[in-house]
Structure formats: C-alpha cells, structure tokens
Amino acid sequence: MAGLRYAALTDTGKREQNEDAYFAGRMNGHHLFAVADGLGGHACGEVASRMAIEILAEAAGRELPESDPGDLLERAFQRINAAIFAYNMDNALNAGTTLSAALVAESGRCWIGTVGDSRTYIVTPASVWHTRDQTYVQDLVESGAISPAGAMLHPRKNILTQALGLSARVQVDLDLAELADGVLLVSSDGLHDHVPESVIREIVLEDDPGTACRRLIDAARDAASTDNTTVIVARA
C-alpha cells in the first residue's frame, strides 16, 4: 500500500461556510484518511471539525508506528472529545463534530474509528461495506422499524446519537477491515444522505481517485444536496 493513490475534495454546497475538515496523507508507515463534519446549527462547528483533524493528525504523527493503531484511534478520539468539550465549557458554546478516520497499513489492513454519521467505506466489485452511523434513524433501521432505503427519506435522519464535544465522554465505534483490491472512501453526510449506494459504488470503482472525487461531488449536487460535502478516495 506504499503506492496507494488518493485524492480529496470538499464542496461548500449551498451553505454559507464549509464546516467540514479533512486529512489525507502518509505518515510513519501508514496512510491516514479522515473527514470531520462540524454540526450545522451549532456554534463554531467549523472550529470543532478543525480541532478534530488537527488533534488526530498530531496523535498519529507522534504515536505511530509504536502504538497499536486501534488503541491510537480510541485515545485520539477521546482526546478530541475532551478538547472540544473544554472549549465549549470555557466559551459557553455547544460546538460539536462527527469524525470518521482510517489508518491504513502497508499490508492493506485498515483500522477505522467513527463518531457520528461521517462514514468510511470499502468498496469492491462484489460488495460495499461502510461504518455504522450513530444516528436516531440507524437505530430505527436496526430495530426493523424502517428499511435502509426509507432511512434516506426520513425527516429525522440528521439526528445524531453521538458527536464529539457535546458531553464529557463519547462512544467510539472501532472497526478492522482489509482494503486488499478494494477502494476506500471517507465521506461526510452531504454525500451519502443523498446519493444512493449503487451510484457511489459505480463511481469509485470506475474512476481514478481524482475523477471519482469530482464525480461524487457532482452526484451530491445533482441529488439536491445543499450540505457541505467532503470525499476522500484511495486505491492501490
């Protein structure tokens, strides 16, 4: 995976400012890909997302390769949560952010951490896997109350059950996956809340990372997404 090709692109959409932040790069024998989506309607969402990316990148740069990547992600997410929570207490704010981050080793093994509804995907010709959304609607899907297709149309689909910075502790979902011959995609919900999985799959499998990023942003616009949209695409 030392020759991993990747690209990233962000789009403000129809919002006044872009509250997404991202990182895509190589450090200490791993690639780090991460997307944070500052919570719309919360004060200083752009500050929270930027803090998340900066603290995560600093932790990876300092602790790799000595630390287990999964343990590193758990510690970094908790550190991010504590930092944003303290910022909120000091400034009487309620800034918050989602974050999905993947550490990819040269072997293709991926350690993935997620809070909120930004996602990491691994897409192959045979399957599409992605991280679990920490949302009210995802809980409804898992209980059988609604279908996955119905979740995209649900009026409360943007209600999070977890976010960084809004409480003293946060539950981090950790996943372990293999990239192998697949394509890795990290995205904010401006993409996957509006663009069907079948379209996402087709784009990332057909195109080089730079072209795929542009097409994904265009697909979000065509699907009437007004949100900030950020995508990172990586493949061998």
Rank of each mutant, 00 (worst) to 15 (best):
Asp71Ile: 15
Gly41Ser: 09
Leu32Ser: 04
His31Thr: 10
Gly40Leu: 04
Ala59Val: 11
Arg15Leu: 03
Ala59Arg: 15
Asp37Gly: 07
Glu16His: 10
Gln17Gly: 10
Tyr22Glu: 11
Thr12Tyr: 04
Gly25Cys: 06
Ser67Asn: 13
Glu54Ala: 05
Tyr22Gly: 04
His31Pro: 11
Asn18Trp: 00
Tyr22Ala: 05
Phe33Ala: 12
Glu58Ser: 14
Met27Leu: 14
Thr10Ile: 04
Ala86His: 14
Ala76Phe: 04
Met27Gly: 08
Gly45Ile: 05
His42Ile: 09
Thr10Pro: 05
Met51Arg: 09
Val47Ile: 08
Gly41His: 03
Ala59Cys: 12
Gly29Lys: 12
Glu66Tyr: 12
Arg79Tyr: 04
Phe85Tyr: 15
Leu56Asp: 05
Gly25Gln: 07
Ala8Asp: 10
Arg75Gly: 01
Leu93Gln: 08
Asp37Val: 02
Leu32Ile: 13
Asp90Met: 14
Tyr22Lys: 09
Glu16Ile: 11
Glu46Cys: 04
Val35Pro: 09
Cys44Val: 06
Arg62Trp: 11
Leu39Asp: 03
Asn88Phe: 00
Asn91Thr: 12
Ala52Ile: 00
Gln78Asn: 14
Ala60Asp: 02
Val35Cys: 03
Leu32Gln: 07
Gln78Lys: 15
Phe85Glu: 13
Met27Phe: 03
Cys44Glu: 02
Ser67Ala: 15
Leu64His: 00
Met51Thr: 00
Ala76Lys: 07
Asp71Glu: 15
Ala36Phe: 01
Asp68Ile: 02
Asp37Pro: 09
Ala60Glu: 03
Lys14Ala: 02
Gly29Tyr: 13
Ala60His: 07
Ala52Leu: 01
Arg50Glu: 05
Arg26Gly: 06
Glu58Phe: 05
Asn88Lys: 07
Pro65Val: 13
Ser67Met: 13
Gln17Phe: 11
Ala8Trp: 14
Asn28Gly: 06
Glu46Gln: 09
Thr10Met: 12
Arg50Met: 02
Ala24Leu: 10
Leu72Ile: 01
Tyr87Asn: 01
Phe85Asn: 13
Phe23Thr: 11
Pro65Met: 13
Phe77Pro: 06
Asp90Ala: 15
Glu54Lys: 13
Leu93Cys: 12
Phe23Lys: 08
Gly61Phe: 07
Ala43Pro: 11
Gly45Ser: 02
Ala82Trp: 10
Gly45Leu: 01
Val47Ser: 00
